[in-house]
């Protein structure tokens, strides 16, 4: 084995050990807030159901609910009825819902949206770059963004109606109480 190959082997093993050791910096049950409290990354993505793009600029100054989903994700289907109900409740308000299709094909995404009654705007993030900039841990994942463009809360896993409404109401109504920074349902 050449000296060069030996060096690659040693570096690979050392890197693996460092990565595994660094994972102990947090408890596995502790889902860190990550991007919570930071300005949400701006993005422009292609619309799932047609030509044109959707830009986060369009929702400036509004309360935004960003939901990451995919057709291959079983828990996404589980949470969808709650999303549909809450969307209907806020449809006429200034709350903006945006669904981001994560690592999925356009055809599968469109079929999912049609079959599951997703009426809010959806965009396609095939390469997962927007998900990465939001620090998505695993889908489904929902982010609550205030009118000032700052991520106020996130929910990992299938979200229920109560958590959704609480996350929105604390942003819409002044003095409605502190917004939950991070929650999970797995």
């Amino acid at each position: 084995m050449s000296r060069w190959l030996r060096a690659v082997l040693v570096v690979a093993i050392a890197s693996l050990v460092v990565v595994l050791a660094l994972a102990f910096r947090r408890a596995p049950t502790d889902i860190r807030t990550g991007t919570v409290g930071k300005p949400a990354a701006a993005f422009t993505l292609e619309k799932l159901d047609g030509p044109g793009t959707w830009s986060s600029e369009q929702a400036k100054g509004k309360v935004v609910v960003v939901n990451f989903f995919a057709s291959w994700c079983i828990p996404c289907k589980e949470e969808n009825p709650a999303l549909v109900r809450v969307y209907e409740r806020y449809r006429a308000s200034d709350v903006v819902f945006i669904g981001v299709l994560y690592q999925d094909s356009r055809d599968s995404g469109l079929k999912y949206v049609r079959d599951n009654g997703v009426a809010w705007p959806t965009v396609i993030d095939d390469a997962g770059r927007v998900a990465f900039s939001y620090g998505v841990f695993g889908i489904p994942e929902t982010f609550f963004i205030g009118p000032d463009g700052v991520i106020v809360g996130r929910h990992i896993g299938p979200i229920d109606e109560t958590t959704l409404v609480r996350g929105i109401e604390c942003l819409r109504v002044p003095n409605a109480g502190d917004c939950p920074r991070a929650s999970a349902s797995r």
């Binding site: 990565v19 595994l20 660094l22 841990f137 695993g138």
Partner: peptide, 21 residues
């Protein structure tokens, strides 16, 4: 499998790799 740990070690962000990969 290790990508989420690698990403976390480098950028501090937590994410997971989906089934499509």
């Amino acid at each position: 499998t290790l990508y989420p740990l690698i990403a976390e070690a480098i950028s501090g962000a937590q994410l997971s790799i989906g089934r499509p990969y």
